[in-house]
């Protein structure tokens, strides 16, 4: 009932100039928007798309790491990785629930992921080839996610902001366990060091792409900033990430694979080389190494789990009948 019969959920909000003006005033005053509040259809649509995409990313993101659970090099590493992947599943749940308050159903979101209509973060379309990749993912991929997610804790839509607060509390462990893995390798044998460097070489650029296109080329950016769904632009967040990460790589004695990377005293940040946007768009469009595998794995999980959902429903039905007979 809570997420049904919402104003605008049927796409028929009466968007008079007065209504839009009053809505923007609420946003400007840092008032939070809650599910039962009237909101422009575009605001609802943007959030459904963004939260859905974010939820899908958490779920698909379990696959590259899940790939290494059985091969973790020690019990300590295995317990940590298992706990991290479990957290990511939880993050997906918080986010799907936040999206559901906007009147979209879980089934519809799942369907759109499987059909390819909904996107998820392109970073998960790269393969995890070595154990070092598990370290790099925690360090860089969760690190980039944290950069993105901290400002989202102040997002104008209440349920999304609250979900992000929970998520951010859990992310710090993810990044630290990753850095610990990489640090161990970087301080290990030559072969281990090489494994760490090779991993950084493969993940650095895709991690920078996680922040999305340059501000000028970003389709939804301006309106999202105005609605305070976003608080920083893609390029601002990417810069923050680079500035935080470069010293962490230096500490490890690893080299960032960007010959143009240079400290810029004037701006108080690093200058960096250009991102290969052809690669970015190609992966977004489905041509990454793992795109097909990821969706195949998600579909298989859904299809192979059907009997569990059916059995649970049948069991609940049986229990209900037994209870009624006893009364």
């Amino acid at each position: 009932m809570y997420s049904q019969g919402l104003i605008g959920a049927d796409g028929r909000t009466d968007e008079t100039p007065e209504f839009l003006e009053a809505f923007q005033q609420r946003i400007d005053a840092e008032d939070k928007i809650e599910p039962n509040d009237a909101m422009p259809e575009g605001y609802r649509r943007t959030l459904v798309r963004q939260i859905g995409q974010h939820a899908h990313s958490e779920i698909v993101g379990m696959l590259p790491e899940g790939n290494w659970i059985t091969r973790a090099p020690s019990l300590r590493r295995k317990a940590a990785l298992l706990a991290k992947v479990q957290d990511e599943g939880g993050h997906g749940l918080y986010l799907y629930s936040a999206a559901e308050t906007l009147g979209v159903s879980r089934e519809q979101m799942t369907e759109e992921l499987h059909s390819g209509k909904a996107k998820y973060s392109s970073i998960f379309n790269y393969p995890t080839l070595s154990w070092a990749d598990i370290g790099t993912i925690g360090w860089l991929v969760d690190g980039a996610a944290i950069m993105n997610q901290i400002p989202l804790c102040r997002c104008s839509f209440g349920p999304y902001a609250r979900a992000m607060i929970r998520v951010c509390k859990e992310e710090s462990f993810h990044q630290r366990q990753g850095y610990e893995i990489i640090m161990t390798l970087a301080q290990g044998t030559d072969a281990q060091k090489e494994m760490a460097q090779d991993s950084l070489n493969r993940w650095w650029w895709p991690a920078l792409m996680m922040f999305g296109p340059h501000d000028g080329d970003s389709e939804h950016s301006d309106q999202s900033m105005k609605w305070k769904i976003k608080r920083f632009t893609n390029d601002e967040l990417r810069q923050k990430f680079i500035d935080a990460t470069v010293p962490q790589a230096e500490y490890l004695g690893l080299k960032i694979p960007d010959p143009e990377l240079k400290w810029n005293e004037e701006k108080g940040g690093y200058d960096h080389g250009e991102i290969d946007w052809n690669e970015f768009w190609s992966v977004v469009k489905g041509n990454g190494r793992m795109n097909r595998d990821r969706i195949k794995a998600r579909r298989a999980a859904w299809d192979n789990g059907a009997w569990v959902r059916e059995a649970a429903t049948a069991h609940a039905e049986k229990r209900r009948a037994r209870k009624m007979a006893a009364e």
Partner: peptide, 19 residues
């Protein structure tokens, strides 16, 4: 008992900064 779910379980040197 699942202390590995907490960030403090992982040792990150001071110099690396906040994480």
């Amino acid at each position: 008992e699942k202390i590995y779910r907490h960030p403090t379980f992982y040792e990150i040197p001071e110099e690396v900064g906040n994480m």
